[in-house]
């Protein structure tokens, strides 16, 4: 009980993990960052629209109306119609879930593989590390979109293959970040302490290292969702991803390209939608990074 006098002094000492921030501090920093708040609200709105929006759209996203082709925005068609007379507003809302599906699943796959490789590489070091990281270097040496193009060319064009392609080029990014953090965490004394307890490597890696390297992973995942959405839209724009009549935004943009002078809204509206979603994830990711960075004050 005499020790309780010391509690205050002890808390001044640095957090045992240099990459860790207290939860309350994290929340305070996150909510005080304008970009994180704007991004966060946008993301919540986007997810809600993607989930419930398709039940409330005025038209079926694939219903054609040849009498009303390439109409500009009006009361009947809020965002106008495309070259088949399909309602663009309904297609954008319906396509939102496709965009998010592509973004989330590509990042999920890329993150799982990348984190696994990175943590193994960092923890074991030596030859395993050299082999894994050189392979990652090779992947990084390709321009991302070219690599994805090559993969889709091999696998054939479909939305799921686009997801795989985009996931592959996000793997090395995660592997590098996680390897770096693992290297710093594995040197900490509590890892030695659990080793001295007789814990197996798997236990140390998944129970003790993984939670301690989570914050850079979360930040990178958020930012990767944005790039994945952008890359996937790019591939669909090139006709390699979603096949018609799927209301994928990249494909819609490609459709509208031919009518750029007569009906610019057909191409610009999907473009703006992509920008808003990517911006939302980027803003939120930046805010998250600042909030999770122990070196940033306030």
């Amino acid at each position: 009980m005499r020790e309780e006098i010391n509690t205050g002094a002890a808390q001044i000492k640095a957090a045992p993990n240099p990459t860790l921030v207290k939860l309350s501090t994290f929340w305070r920093k996150l909510t005080s960052s304008k970009s994180a708040v704007v991004g966060g609200i946008l993301i919540i709105a986007i997810i809600l629209i993607a989930l419930i929006g398709p039940y409330f759209v005025p038209y079926s996203p694939s219903a054609t109306d040849t009498a009303n082709r390439l109409n500009g925005p009006s009361l009947a068609h809020w965002l106008g119609t495309d070259n088949y007379g399909r309602d663009i507003f309904s297609r954008i809302i319906d396509g939102m879930s496709i965009t998010l599906y592509v973004g989330f699943s590509a990042v999920l796959i890329g993150m799982t593989v990348g984190v696994f490789l990175g943590i193994i590489s960092g923890y074991y070091g030596g030859k395993i590390d050299t082999i894994i990281m050189r392979f990652m270097d090779i992947l990084l040496a390709f321009p991302g979109i070219l690599l994805a193009l090559a993969i889709v060319a091999v696998l054939g064009s479909s939305l799921n293959n686009v997801i795989i392609a985009v996931a592959v080029f996000s793997v090395p990014v995660f592997a590098r970040i996680v390897r770096g953090s693992t290297l710093s965490v594995k040197k900490l004394e509590y890892i030695d302490a659990v080793k001295a307890l007789g814990a197996s490597d798997a236990r140390i890696i998944f129970k003790h290292i993984l939670p301690n390297v989570a914050s850079p992973i979360i930040v990178q995942a958020t930012l990767s969702i944005a790039t994945s959405i952008l890359s996937a839209s790019g591939l669909s724009f090139l006709g390699l991803g979603a096949q018609p009549p799927m209301p994928e935004w990249g494909a819609m943009l490609a459709d509208g390209r031919n009518y750029m002078y007569d009906a610019p809204h057909v191409a610009t509206i999907p473009g703006i939608a992509i920008v808003i979603v990517v911006l939302a994830f980027n803003l939120f990711g930046d805010g998250l990074r600042d909030a999770l960075d122990p070196k940033m004050k306030n």
């Binding site: 002890a10 000492k13 957090a15 045992p16 993990n17 860790l20 900490l188 004394e189 509590y190 030695d192 302490a193 659990v194 080793k195 001295a196 307890l197 007789g198 814990a199 197996s200 003790h208 939670p211 301690n212």
Partner: peptide, 24 residues
Amino acid sequence: EMRKIRGNEISMIFQEPMTSLNPV
């Protein structure tokens, strides 16, 4: 076999109590 000995038959206390516990 070593893992069965560590922490079970031979245990160790480290120097730095500040960093020897996992913060999470």
